[in-house]
Amino acid sequence: MEQVANQVIFFLLSAIIVVCSIMAVTSRRILRAATYLLFVLFATAGYYFQLDYHFLGAVQVTIYAGGILVLFVFAILLTSKLGEKSDRISSRKRAWGLLAAVLGAAICGYTLLTHDFFPSQFAQGGELDMKTVGHALMGMDKYQYLLPFEAISVLLLACIIGGIMIARKR
C-alpha cells in the first residue's frame, strides 16, 4: 500500500517537475517563469524526501526556494515592469534550441532506457540521522568533508563582498 502511495506521489512530482520545467523556460512573463521554477524546486525537494534524504530536502526548500528564489523575485521586480512580456523568440533561434534540446534528450533518454543498470528498489536504510551528517561534515578523516566545508564558507564570504562591490551604487 505504501509502495503504491509512494509511486503515485513520485509520478505526481515527476509530472510537476516536467510540466513546470517546460513552462519555466517557455513562459514569456519572467515572474511566472520564476514561479514555475519555484514549483520545480519544491518538487525536487519532494524527491529528496522520497529518497529519505530529509536534511537535503530541507536545505533545498530553505536555500533554494526560500533564498535564491526570493533573490530572483527581487531582481525581476527591480529590472522589469509588471506584466511585461518578453519579445517573441525568433523561429530560427527556437528551431536551433529545440534541435539541441530534443536531440540531447533523445540520445540521453534512449541510452538510459536501453541500459539496465538500476535496481528497481533502493535498500530501505531509513533516513540519515543528523549526527552522521554532522560528523561527516566536520570530520577530517576519509569521507569526511571539513576542508570543502571551509572552502565553501570562504567562497560564500567572497561572494558576499563581491556582491556588495558589484551592486553598490557609485
Partner: peptide, 20 residues
C-alpha cells in the same frame, strides 16, 4: 554566447552519439 552554446551542445551530442 547562446549560438556558441548551441553549436557546442550539438557537437557534444554528435560526439556522444558516435562514441556510444
Amino acid at each position: 554566447l547562446q549560438s556558441y552554446a548551441v553549436v557546442f551542445l550539438l557537437g557534444a551530442m554528435i560526439i556522444a552519439a558516435i562514441v556510444l
